[in-house]
Amino acid sequence: MKRLKYILHRLLWSVFVLFGLSILIFCIARVIPGDAATMALGTRATEEAKELYREQNHLNEPIPVQYVYWLKSAVQGDFGQSTQTRRAVSSDVAEFLPATLELILFAAILEIVGGLLLGVLCARYAGSWFDNLIRVVSYVGISVPAFVWAILFMLTFSFLIPILPTIGRISAGITVPPVTGFLLIDSLIAGNFQAFGDVLKHLIMPGTALALAGIAQSARITRGSMLENVEKDYVGSEIASGMPLRRVYARYILRPAASPTVAIIALDIAAMLGNAFLVEVIYSYPGISKYGINAILNKDLNAIVAVVLVIGVTFLIVNILVDIISSVLDPRIRA
C-alpha cells in the first residue's frame, strides 16, 4: 500500500515536471535565432506567404498566447506539422521513436550484461591481472565519447574488416511488414530470419558505441560496491557458517551492491535517448535523435518541442522504475 501511494505521488509530480519542461522548451524554441516562417517556406517565399504562415501558426502572438494554443492541441495528441517532413509531428515521432528505442534497448542489454558480469568478476578476483586490466580499460571506455567509438568501429568493421553494414537500419531490398515498429520483433513475427540477422548486424556497431561508456562505469561501480559489502560482518558470519561462497556472493554481496549499479544503468539508458544523436548521424540511422537534430538545424519548432518532451517523459519513467527496483533490491530503502 505504501509503495502504491509512493508511485502515485511520483506520477503526480511527474505531471508538474512535464508541464514545467514544456513551458521551458517551448520558450527556448521560440527565441532560437532565425525566422520560423522563412525556415518553413524557404527564402524565395513572398512576404505575404510568410505573414500568412505566421498568422496561421499564431507566431505573431505573444509567447504565452502561443503556448496556450500549442497546449490545447498537445493534450489532444496534436503537436502540429513538421516543416521538415510536411507531416504531423506525432506521425514522425511514431515512425522514428521505435528505431531509437530498439537501438537503446540493444545497448542497454549490452550494458547490463557486460557491466554486471565484468564488475562481479573484478570483485571476485580483486587484485589479479584480470581486475587490473579491466580497471585500466574501463577508464578508457569512460573517457572516450560514444561518437569516437562509432567512427573507430566504422573504420575497423566496415572498411578495414568489412563484416558489418555501415549505414541505415536494414539493408536495401529487405522488407519487413510493420507491426510494432521494432524491426527485430517484426521480423520474428513475419518469420523472416534473414531480416532479423540483417537488422541485428545494423545494431551491433551503433549499439556497442552507445553502451561502452556505460559498461565501463557499471563495472567499476559494481566492483566497488561488492568489495565494500564483502567487509560486512554478516558476510563473514555466513562464510564461517559454511555457506557456499557462490551463494554468499549472489545473495549477500551482489544483491545489495546491485542497487547503485541499477540506478546508474537506468539513468544511462535514459540519457542514451539524448546522446544517440551523433551516433545516429554517423550511421545514418533513422531515429528520433537524428530527427531532433535536423529539427534544431531547420528551426522546426513543433518537432523540437515534441522530441524534448519525449526525452523528458523517458527520464521520468526511468526514474520511477529505478526507485521501484531499488526498493525491491534493498529493503533499507523501503524502510
Rank of each mutant, 00 (worst) to 15 (best):
A150W: 08
S171H: 01
A216M: 06
A190V: 08
P165N: 03
G224T: 08
L203G: 04
P256K: 00
T261Y: 02
S171D: 14
G197C: 04
S225L: 07
W149F: 15
L200Q: 07
L160Q: 12
I204Q: 06
V248K: 03
T261P: 02
F193Y: 14
M205L: 15
V199P: 01
F182D: 00
V235D: 11
L188Y: 04
L152A: 14
W149P: 00
I215M: 14
S171L: 06
D233P: 00
L160I: 15
E238V: 10
R169E: 03
L164W: 09
R247C: 02
M205W: 04
P260K: 10
T222Q: 10
I239A: 15
E228M: 05
P165H: 01
A266W: 08
G236E: 12
G207T: 01
I167S: 15
F182S: 08
Y252C: 02
S218V: 12
L164T: 09
I189D: 06
H202E: 08
I239H: 05
F159E: 09
G191E: 01
P206F: 13
L184F: 08
F193K: 04
I161K: 09
P256N: 07
I170L: 13
L203K: 01
T175P: 00
A150Y: 05
A219F: 09
N192P: 03
I167D: 10
P206Y: 11
P177N: 12
L200H: 07
I163D: 00
A195H: 03
D186H: 09
E228L: 08
I161Y: 11
G242P: 13
I151K: 14
